[in-house]
């Protein structure tokens, strides 16, 4: 903490009592809390189209703000998450969703990781069984062990 900050800190401490006399509650920016929860949830899943790579929630771009407002109005009308997403997808395409839909084109995307896991698991198991049946055990030969310890010196 720099000296100026300490002074300011003390000044605020002194002011604290007097400040609390005229302190008033800050008003929330948006009045409908349940709508805001929905807006927040949706805007973290939707992409700001003009930004490098940001969700509507994170972006300060004007289009993102407009879209957020649009979502807020739809949410106020009581539209479900799915209905709002469908509305935006019908205008901007799947590009607007950070969570791609599951369809034939994206099946590899969604199933790929688990397919890889399955393949990896099977490969691992087969390999381990094969190794278990190995008769020769050749971890490090005496010569190798000597070389290793020599390299250590």
């Amino acid at each position: 903490m720099t000296l100026t900050r300490i002074i300011r800190f003390i000044a605020i401490l002194c002011l604290l009592q007097s400040v609390s006399l005229w302190a008033q509650e800050a008003q929330p920016l948006q009045t409908n809390a349940t709508v805001e929860v929905q807006v927040e949830r949706l805007s973290t899943q939707l992409r700001c189209l003009v930004c490098q790579n940001q969700t509507i929630a994170d972006s300060h771009a004007e289009l993102a703000q407009d879209l957020k407002q649009e979502i807020r109005e739809m949410a106020t009308k009581g539209m479900t998450d799915q209905a709002i997403i469908d509305y935006l997808v019908s205008r901007y395409g799947d590009f607007v969703r950070y969570k791609p839909p599951f369809n034939p084109a994206t099946s590899l995307l969604w199933l790929g990781p688990f397919g890889l896991l399955l393949a990896g698991g099977i490969g691992l198991f087969v390999m381990l069984r094969r190794r278990q049946k190995m008769t020769t055990d050749a971890p490090l030969s005496a010569d190798e062990a000597r070389k290793v310890s020599e390299l250590l010196k």
């Binding site: 899943q45 790579n53 799947d94 590009f95 969703r97 950070y98 969570k99 791609p100 084109a105």
Partner: peptide, 10 residues
């Protein structure tokens, strides 16, 4: 096959 975004939810 179209443009999609893959982001945090995925």
């Amino acid at each position: 096959l179209g443009k999609i975004s893959v982001g945090p939810p995925y």
